[in-house]
């Protein structure tokens, strides 16, 4: 009996120590990984406010569940996976209600812009459209489907009867060519 009670009390100490460590890891992780996680969520959701909500909700969940992670690296992997799953859920859910990615992609480029930005935006947008016309035909179609129509790689691959690998490669190629052509505007 005494033995177990002894263990019990050590347990109390252990869990306190863990609690301190957890708090430190939590704060460090927020500080180190916020930008990257937010960038990732923004790319997935095409909306910065939704990206904020996503990152906030995964950190909230981590705090509530106190999921025990030993190192910064495991915390990082946990957080990225959580953002990924969270965003996928948001996307799938919204897809039911509307063709969300198209709407969101369009909203993205028009929201939070003041007048002075608008001119630069329109100019850049025109330049991008022109440069896109110069892309090799297949490359352009794929890039448009992804960037303008907000379609996923798998969908594009199915529609065009190509492999996802091809879509990936063509998208990379499109960006590389556009960057070269638009050098002066970027």
């Amino acid at each position: 009996m005494t033995f177990h009670l002894f263990i019990n009390d050590i347990r109390g100490l252990e869990s306190k120590k863990t609690s301190f460590q957890f708090e430190r890891l939590f704060k460090e992780s927020f500080d180190n990984f916020f930008d990257g996680l937010h960038r990732y969520a923004t790319a997935m959701l095409k909306d910065e406010d939704k990206a904020n909500d996503a990152v906030q909700s995964i950190f909230t969940r981590w705090w509530e569940m106190k999921t025990d992670l030993e190192t910064t690296d495991s915390a990082k992997a946990y957080l990225y996976t959580a953002v990924y799953r969270h965003c996928l859920n948001v996307i799938r859910h919204e897809k039911i209600k509307s063709n969300h990615r198209v709407v969101a992609a369009r909203e993205m480029v028009t929201h939070t812009m003041v007048d002075s930005d608008l001119n630069t935006f329109e100019e850049l947008d025109t330049q991008i459209s022109n440069a896109m016309n110069d892309l090799p035909p297949q490359c352009r179609i794929i890039f448009e489907k992804s960037r303008l129509e907000g379609k996923r790689y798998v969908e594009i691959a199915e529609e065009m009867d190509l492999s996802v690998k091809t879509i990936e490669a063509q998208m990379g190629k499109a960006l590389r060519i556009l960057r070269e052509k638009l050098k002066d505007y970027l």
């Binding site: 990257g36 990732y40 790319a43 997935m44 959701l45 095409k46 992997a77 990225y80 996976t81 953002v83 990924y84 965003c87 996307i91 992804s146 960037r147 996923r152 790689y153 990936e168 490669a169 998208m171 990379g172 190629k173 499109a174 960006l175 590389r176």
Partner: peptide, 17 residues
Amino acid sequence: DTLLGKFLAGEATPEEA
């Protein structure tokens, strides 16, 4: 650039991100 493209298109896996 392929990987950067995937990332921007919202297609990157957590590891890639």
